[in-house]
Design a protein around this nucleic acid. Structure first.
Lengths: 222, 222, 222, 222
DNA sequence: CATGAATGAGTCTTCATTCAT
DNA sequence: CATGAATGAAGACTCATTCAT
C-alpha cells in the first residue's frame, strides 16, 4: 500500500514534469514564431526556420500546432489574452473618473507597446490580411477590446452623473480611442522609433482623447 | 516633306490611339487586380486569375507591371493619389475654420469609404504585412496624409488665432484623426455593414475629433 | 523445491494470463486495422488511428507488428488461413462429385463473402498494388487456393472416371473458378449491394462453372 | 487580302503545330507515368520521377494534369478507351455465333494483354485500392465492359434461337467471362510469365467459357 | 507587343518509425 | 511491457516569373 502510494506520487511527479516540459515546448515554439513573424513577416517565415530557432524538429511544430496558420492564431490569442488581462487589471482598479481612462491608455503604451514591440508588430501588421480565420481572430479581439472600453466609458459617465448625446456614443468613443492608440503605436513605434518621446506623446494623446469624450457628453441636463 | 508630315500625322494618330489603348489595358488590369485583391485577398489571388478577369494574357500583365508586388504598389499609389486629390480639393476650398475639418472627414467617409469599399479593403487590410516595399508605400501614404492634416490643423489654428500646447501637437492631432477614421472605416464598414448609419456616426465622430483638437489648444494666451 | 514449485505454478498462471492478454491485444489491434483498412483504405489509414480504435498506444502497435505493411500481411494471412480452413473443411467432407464443387462455391459466397465484407474488401481491393511483399502474400494465397481447387477438380474427375483434354486443364479450371468467384464478389457485393440476390446468383454461377468444367473433360475414352 | 490570307494560313499552321506539340507533351508525360506506375507501382512513383522520364519539368506535369491521381485516371480512361475500341471492333465484325465470343477472348489476350503488359498491370493492379475516384473509374470501366459482353451474349443467343434460364443470366455470364480473363491475365502474365503458352491457355479457356455459357441455355424449348 | 506554355525553387504537410521514460 | 512525444525524410503541389514564337 505504502509502496503503491509512493509509486503513485512518483508517477504523478514524472507525469507533472512531462506536462511541464510539454508546455515549455509549446511556449518555446510559439515564442520562436513570434520572433520570426515580427522580424521577417509571416509569409516570409518558413516552418523550418521556426523549428530551427526553437531547436526542435519540423514534426514537433506540427505536433503542437495544426498548421502554420494555427501558430498565428494561437499567437493572436496569447496576445489578446495578455492585453486584455493587462487592461482588465487596470479597469478593475479604476475609480471611474476620466483620469482612469488616461491611466489605461498610459498602461497600454508603456506596458504593452513599449515592452512588447514584437506583439504589436504581429497584432497591428502581420496578422492583417492573411486569411479569413486570422482576420476573424483579429476582429474578435478588436471588438472585445472596444466593448470593454465602451463599458468603462459608460461607467465613468455614470460616475460623473453625465449622459452622452446618443445611446451609441460610448461605442463610438471606444472605437475612436482604439483607433487613436493603434495609430500612435504604428506611427511612433513601428514606423518611427520614438520610444523615448512616448510618454510625452501619451500625455498629449490623452488630452485629445479626453477632449473627444467630453465633447460627446450631453449638455441638456440641469 | 509633305509625305513625311503625312506619315508623321498618321503615326501620331495611330500612336495616340495605341497610347490610349495601352493606358486602357493598364487600367483594366489594375482594376481586375483591385477587384480580386479585395474579394479574395492579395495572397490568395494569382496572376492568372487577374489576367483572366482582365481578359488579357499572363504575359500582358508582366508587360504592364514588373511583378505581382508592383500591382499592389501601383494600386496603392492610385488609391493614395485619388484620396489625396479628394481631400486636397476640400482642403483648398477650406475657410480654415474647425468646421472645415469636419467637412473633410465627412468627405473621406462618404466619397472614399462608402463609395469605394474595395479601395479601403486594400488600403486598410490587403496591403498590410505583405512586404517591405508595400509597407513603405503604405507608410509613405499615411505620413503624407498625416502631414497634410497636420498642416490643415495648423492653418486652422492660425485662422482662429490660437496656439497648441506643444509644437508637435498638430502632428499628434493628425495622427489621432487618421487613427479615428481608419478604425471607423474598418469597424463600421469592413467588419460590420453599417453603411446606412455612417452619416450619423460621422457626425458624432467629428464631435469627438473637434473635442480632441480643442483640448490641445494652449490656454495661456490673453 | 516446494517453494520453487509454488513459484513456478504462480508464474505459470500469471504467465498464462499474460499470454492470453497478449494474444488478445494482438487480435484487437489486427481487428482495428481490418475495420479501418476496409472502411478508409490502407493508404488513408494511419497507425495512430489504428491505435486509437484499438485503444492502445502507437508503441503497442509496433510491439505486436513490425510495421504498417506487417499489419496488412498478417491480416492477409489471417484471411487466407480462415478461407482455406473454411474451404478445406468442405473439401474434406466432399464425395468427389461435381456437386461438391457447387457446394464449396456456395460456402465461399455465403460464409466468406456475405459474412465478412471487410475481409473481401481487404483481400480483393486494399491488398492490391501496395508493395512487393504484400503482392507476394496475395499471390501466394491465390496460388494455394488455385492449387487446392485444382486438386479437388482432379479428384472429382478421378471419381467420375474421366480425363481432361490436357494435363494442365485442372489448373486452368481452377484459375477460371477463382476468377469467376472473385469477380462475382467484387461486382455484386463491393460495387452493387446485391446481398439478397446472392444465393440466386450463386446457383447460376455454379451452372456456369460446371458447364466450363464439363467442357474440358476429354471425350476420347471408351 | 491575299497577304492577310497568307498570314492566316501561317498562323493556323503554327497554331496547329503548337497544338500537335501540346498533345505530344501530354502523351509523353502520360506514357512516362504508365511506364513507372507499372514498373514501380503508383505509390512508389513520385511526380519528379515522371517529369524526369518525360524530360519535362515538374510544373509541366501539373500543367497537363491536375494532380497525381489525375494521371492515373487519365491513364485508366486511355486504357479503357483502347480496350473497348479493340473489343468493339471485334464485336462489330461478329457473326453472332458462339465462335465470335471465342475470338473476342482471343483478341483480348493477344492484342491487349500480351501486347501491353504495362496496361494490364495498371488496370488489374495499380489502379486498385488507391482512391474513391480511381475506384469509380475502374468500376465504371468494368461495368461497361461487362454490359458490352452481356449484350454480345444476348445477341449470340438470339442468333442461335436460344433463351437463357433467367433474364439475368447474360449479365452473370458476362461477369464470369470478365472474371475468367482477368484472372488468367493476372495469373499467367503478371505472376507467372507464361506468355508463350498463352495461346494454348486461351484455347482451353474458351472451351471453359463456352461450356459455361451453354449450361445456362434454357432447355425448356422444343 | 501579345501570348501562354514551361520552369523549378520553395513550402507546407504527412506519417511511419523510433526510443527515452 | 507500455507509452506517446519527437523525428525528419519524402513528396505533392503552387505560382511568380520567363521567353520562344
Amino acid at each position: 500500500m505504502v509502496k503503491a502510494k509512493e509509486n503513485d506520487t512518483k508517477m504523478s511527479r514524472s507525469a507533472l514534469r512531462r506536462l511541464r516540459e510539454k508546455e515549455q515546448r509549446f511556449k518555446t515554439i510559439l515564442s520562436a514564431a513570434e520572433t520570426l513573424f515580427a522580424r521577417k513577416g509571416y509569409n516570409q517565415t518558413s516552418i523550418e526556420e521556426i523549428a530551427d530557432l526553437a531547436e526542435v524538429s519540423i514534426g514537433a511544430v506540427y505536433f503542437y500546432f495544426k498548421n502554420k496558420e494555427d501558430l498565428l492564431i494561437k499567437l493572436m490569442q496569447e496576445i489578446g489574452y495578455y492585453l486584455r488581462k493587462l487592461l482588465g487589471e487596470e479597469l478593475r482598479k479604476t475609480d471611474f473618473s476620466l483620469h482612469s481612462l488616461q491611466h489605461i491608455a498610459f498602461v497600454f503604451l508603456r506596458d504593452f507597446c513599449l515592452s512588447h514591440p514584437e506583439k504589436i508588430t504581429i497584432f497591428f501588421r502581420e496578422s492583417v490580411g492573411q486569411s479569413a480565420e486570422v482576420e476573424d481572430q483579429r476582429k474578435e479581439l478588436f471588438i472585445k477590446l472596444t466593448s470593454e472600453i465602451r463599458d468603462a466609458v459608460l461607467k465613468i459617465s455614470e460616475g460623473l452623473g453625465k449622459h452622452f448625446v446618443t445611446e451609441s456614443s460610448p461605442e463610438l468613443i471606444a472605437v475612436c480611442i482604439v483607433g487613436i492608440y493603434e495609430r500612435i503605436a504604428c506611427h511612433y513605434l513601428l514606423w518611427q522609433d520614438r520610444s523615448e518621446d512616448m510618454m510625452e506623446i501619451a500625455g498629449e494623446a490623452s488630452s485629445f482623447m479626453l477632449g473627444g469624450v467630453s465633447n460627446l457628453f450631453s449638455h441638456d441636463e440641469t
